[in-house]
Amino acid sequence: MTREEFLELVRRREPLAAEEVRGYMHEMSERARRITFEINGAYHTPEELRALLSELFGREVDPSVRLFPPFYTDYGQNIHLGRGVFINACCHFQDHGGVTLGDGCQIGHDVVFATLDHGLEPEERATTRPAPITLGRNVWVGSHATILRGVRIGDNAVVAAGAVVTKDVPAEVIVGGVPARILGSIHREKR
């Protein structure tokens, strides 16, 4: 299986159950672990970190991106970061389904992006189902939040610390809780 074939399955949100798919996922997880161990195992300058992230993602990372390790991912090749993104320490990107962070996103400590889910029935649990997570511009995700598969978060939204986001979040709102619900809105003064 090639990266392009895998990403096409994911784009169509097809179940990831075939032996060939599982083999590819295992191989890519080993690759991601090798690179993340290098990221997490020693001090690196910001330039060195961006080079390692570029290798992990399979594409160039913008010079404005900042990351505080440790950083964890089980695939790495379906993460897309905009300009000016900041990712704090101990974040987990389960990115097989795709994680996109728009320009200016701020990600707190220990945030989890989970793009795969399993069926509830015991015979379905070995099959994973992908769906992308997409954050708009200038989204702030507080520490220990979890964003689940298929969620879209609108521009300028805030996800409170510890929230579990199971549904789409409109732009310009604050969400929090388990499951997350709208707590308020971002009031922007007109100048």
Rank of each mutant, 00 (worst) to 15 (best):
C105V: 05
E47W: 08
A171V: 00
M28N: 12
Y24P: 11
G98F: 05
T100E: 14
L120Y: 15
A160S: 14
T2Y: 08
R149F: 06
H187T: 12
P70H: 06
S54G: 13
T45G: 09
G136S: 04
E60A: 05
D74Y: 03
F37K: 13
A114Y: 02
H92N: 09
A160Q: 09
A171D: 00
A18W: 03
E5Q: 08
V175E: 11
L16Y: 02
T128Y: 15
T2V: 08
C105M: 06
I87V: 12
G176R: 04
G108I: 00
T36W: 12
A131K: 04
P170T: 08
R129F: 15
C90L: 11
N78W: 02
N156K: 04
D117W: 14
V65I: 14
A163N: 03
G184W: 10
P69H: 04
P132Q: 07
V139K: 09
A42T: 07
R33K: 13
T73K: 02
K167Q: 12
P69Y: 12
E124W: 11
E55K: 15
D168G: 09
R50I: 00
W140L: 00
E4K: 14
C105Y: 04
T73W: 01
P63H: 08
N88V: 00
E172C: 13
V141T: 03
R11L: 09
I107E: 12
S185T: 13
E48T: 03
S29H: 15
G184A: 10
T127L: 08
R188K: 12
E55V: 14
R33C: 01
V178Y: 07
A145T: 08
R137E: 15
N88H: 05
E14K: 14
A131S: 13
K190R: 15
G104A: 05
F71C: 01
V111Y: 00
H26P: 11
T127K: 10
E4P: 02
H92M: 09
G184Y: 08
T115N: 05
G108S: 02
I147P: 02
V65K: 13
C91S: 14
H92F: 10
P15S: 03
L56S: 09
R129C: 12
D74M: 05
V112Q: 03
M1D: 06
G98T: 03
F86H: 14
F57S: 06
Y43C: 12
D103C: 03
V65T: 13
A42Q: 09
L67F: 06
I133G: 02
I153C: 00
G97Q: 04
G119W: 15
G102M: 01
E14N: 04
D74L: 00
H187M: 12
E48M: 08
G119E: 15
V112T: 06
G136F: 04
E20Y: 10
A42K: 13
E124G: 11
S143C: 12
T73R: 00
M25N: 11
L7P: 07
F86N: 14
G82V: 04
Y75A: 03
A17H: 13
L81Y: 05
L9I: 06
